[in-house]
Design a protein around this nucleic acid. Structure first.
Length: 287
DNA sequence: ATCGGGATTGCCT
DNA sequence: GGCAATCCCGATG
């Protein structure tokens, strides 16, 4: 059991040793190295500056921001200069205050969720189930944030596959492109988003940012499905809110909600509602 | 100090 | 579709 392990570690550390487990120390060191490395070598290309979304984008209500994220491109510049890109296809809104499913429910502010209360655009990374991470972005509204759930890989797929494979069984089959980022913790792994990105600013950070998708017509309709959020069943009425948003028919969505899709015939909340013009036209390479 | 739960994933049947 | 893995965090005494 976890409790037992903890106790033993604490006992060993009691004799003049720092109370940091080797694993934790290792992670900390990785984070530090990474930051130092990029600080030394970071720069923005013209293209980056042109497409990068600034702080004004994040300053909108949570649900509105959760939808606005769809179709935008999350970019991660790694220490070696490699850029990884993925189009956001699935998000969830977590409001502060009344929303019992939110870490900030009741205005509760802790060491862990501090980023949720920081200025819109602040990244909130938290560990879940002991082994995974989830990435959120704070929005307008006290304690509100958007969970990024799935991406369509656009650039750097081999690196993503490598990062994901590193945590899987040796000899496991290769992941298809659409499996690289189709889940909140998967996208953290594939884009190499570490815990120490918590509280950074997505509008100004040199290692991670958001871009408009140059390939998507900004005026074009996005067919958005509004569904119940995942993994919060125990939160009563708040579990029924349709605060998960995803692109209808997109192969990289983590969980399809058929009921929600039936009930939101034309879930077009964005742009003109040309009825299902290009459903199923998503083009993700299979490997 | 101890305890219970969790915004998940991957592997198994 | 079921379920184990795995540990941090926050609450409680």
């Amino acid at each position: 059991m976890a409790g037992r392990k903890r106790t033993m570690l604490a006992a060993e550390g009691a004799v003049n040793k720092p109370k940091v487990s080797p694993a934790k120390l290792q992670k900390r060191i990785q984070c530090e190295n990474e930051s130092v490395e990029t600080e030394r070598s970071h720069y923005f290309t013209k293209n980056d500056l042109q497409h990068r979304l600034g702080e004004e984008f994040f300053n909108q209500p949570c649900i509105s921001l959760a939808k606005a994220f769809l179709g935008k491109v999350l970019v991660r510049r790694c220490a070696d200069g490699t850029e990884l890109r993925g189009r956001i296809v699935e998000t969830e809104a977590y409001l502060g205050g009344e929303d019992k499913a939110s870490h900030s429910a009741g205005g509760k502010r802790t060491e862990r969720n501090t980023a949720m209360f920081m200025k819109p655009g602040t990244i909130y990374v938290y560990p879940i189930y002991g082994i995974y991470l989830c990435m959120n972005v704070s929005s307008e509204g006290e304690g509100a944030a958007v969970l990024l759930r799935s991406l369509e890989p656009l650039q750097g797929q081999p690196t993503m596959r490598q990062l994901r494979a590193a945590r899987r069984k040796e000899g496991a089959r290769q992941l298809k492109d659409k499996e690289l980022c189709n889940g909140p913790s998967k996208l953290c792994q594939a884009l190499n988003v570490p815990r120490c990105f918590d509280r950074r600013d997505l509008a100004s950070d040199p290692e991670v940012w958001l871009e408009r998708d140059p390939d998507t017509n900004p005026a074009g309709p996005l067919d958005v499905v509004s569904a119940t959020r995942i993994g919060i069943e125990s939160h009563g009425e708040w579990a029924e809110k349709l605060w998960r948003f995803y692109l209808r028919g997109h192969p990289c969505v983590s969980v399809v909600n058929k009921k929600a899709e039936r009930e939101s015939l034309s879930g077009n909340d964005l742009g003109p509602s040309d009825v299902q013009a290009d459903t199923g036209q998503h083009n993700v390479k299979r490997t």
